[in-house]
Amino acid sequence: MAEGCSGSILQFAPFQSSVDEGFWHRLSSLKLNQLGIDESPISITGFYAPCTHPQVSNHLTLLSESLPPEEGEQSFVRDRSHSNRNRCAVPGILYNTNTIEGFHALDKQCLLREEAKKIWADIQSGAAEKDSALLSRFLLISFADLKKWSFHYWFAFPALVLDPPATLADLKPASDFLSLEEAESLSVACNEWRKSSATADVPYFLVTLGSNSRATIKHLSDWEACRHDIHKLLFGFYDPCHLPNNPGWPLRNFLGLIYSRWNLKSIRFLCYRENRGFADMGLSLIGEALISAPQEWRYEQHVPSSVGWELNRGKRLPRCITLSKSMDPIRLAVSAA
């Protein structure tokens, strides 16, 4: 449709990480009591939620519950069902090395590609339509220096790269895009979706706008039923980003899914954002992305290239945090004396 529109390149605001102190405490105790020198990758869980404030983005957060429980520990529900509306579970993988040299020697491009492959495989197999959190799979590499109680780490949020990149035909606040009735109805539908424990942590969804201005939200697995309503369909996702002119990172792999599985070249998306915990159609954005990637995107064997290593204050560097104050037994003993 928007053929004459010389759209700009669609740019996505990168995901940002946030690690709770509890994560490092648990990783240390896991390392000391259970893992030993075993360097096998560990499945972990990250949490995120839609942006909920006009001035700050949300983050992919790791908590102590992100790590598997220790052996013999009372096994409280630590699976994905442990998420809630403010922490939607996302699968990730942790490579924790024994030495700083090992940490730097990790082949980062290769690890990122491996995770991107999993995302691609989940898109192709249809698994991502059943469990959409698989689209936001992430990667963490770390070295835990338990002598100094410092932790070196680096996150990657693998994103499949469309080449040539998607262009933007249109992007504006949802309230400008929709009629008053539609915006009202969409807010109600979104709030219900977010309120129900069955859907609150499902970060990708389909929105159909009926001729009576009524918005309905459906799971990605209901695509077949919705595809004929395509002219009034929005592809929605929980957007952690707060910026008024850019969608957040989770849209990238979603566009990949829509393009390669459903063969759409013009995609109308909804960046779902909240204010104080409720749908905000002024902060939420609706945009239209145009994709002109080559045919290979239809072939399962072809894994698109990927990007996603997090920057540390604008630089390509790992992060480091020292927690000796709260973890070093000697320091703790001194402060308790």
Partner: peptide
């Protein structure tokens, strides 16, 4: 990657 917003 042209699709990554250079932003901090």
């Amino acid at each position: 990657d042209p699709g990554t917003l250079q932003y901090t």
